[in-house]
């Protein structure tokens, strides 16, 4: 069964007819020719398909396209104007935080989401919540342990993890976090 939907991908509006069964990831890859979100597992187990929807990082493989009619989707290709690199992407290049590159756009999108979430004061499992008022919402400093925990939904089989953490740490400490996702 088909449905006609609108997707705003990296600032561009697309009107398309999809099978109700079509996942957002497949709509992006098969229908719109977007190569940035990758299919590594198709079941929410690897993070390669991570994109930002309305600024929040999600797994596009576990989203149905029909349910995202009207959504604004940002892929790693759309984080910066063509020809430029987003600070997070630049840091990945600088630190050689990639090898085969297949998980990389997902890692980059996830890192952008991490920086935003930490800037909003969202805790992670390893955030010290023993202070006076854990709910006050102050930004969470992103040390390496925080970055590791928050990035754990993005597998990298090449084992570039330490370099990815270097990259995210360098951007986090440069304070480019909060604005990155918006």
């Amino acid at each position: 069964m088909d449905a006609t939907i609108t997707l705003h991908v990296d600032g561009e509006e697309h009107r398309l007819t999809v099978d109700t069964r079509t996942g957002l990831l497949d709509a992006l890859r098969d229908r719109l020719g977007e190569t940035s979100p990758k299919k590594g597992c198709d079941h929410g187990q690897c993070g390669a398909c991570t994109v930002l929807v309305e600024g929040r990082r999600i797994l596009s493989c576990l989203a149905l396209a029909v349910s995202h009619d009207g959504a604004r989707v940002t892929t790693a290709a759309g984080l910066a104007p063509r020809g430029d690199l987003h600070p997070v992407a630049r840091a990945f290049v600088d630190r050689d935080a990639l090898q085969c590159g297949y998980c990389t756009p997902g890692q980059v999108c996830s890192a952008v989401g991490v920086l935003d979430e930490a800037a909003r004061g969202w805790p992670s499992l390893v955030t010290d919540e023993s202070g006076d008022d854990p709910g006050e919402g102050a930004p969470v400093p992103l040390d390496r342990e925080e970055i590791r925990e928050r990035m754990s939904g993005n597998l990298c089989r090449c084992g570039a993890y330490t370099h990815i953490v270097d990259a995210v740490e360098s951007v986090g400490s440069a304070g480019a976090g909060g604005e990155a996702a918006r």
Binding site: G44, T50, R57, I58, G113
Partner: peptide, 12 residues
């Protein structure tokens, strides 16, 4: 909640 799944999954 923060023990479960990943940041991306928890967002959805």
């Amino acid at each position: 909640l923060l023990s479960g799944a990943s940041g991306q999954l928890r967002n959805a």
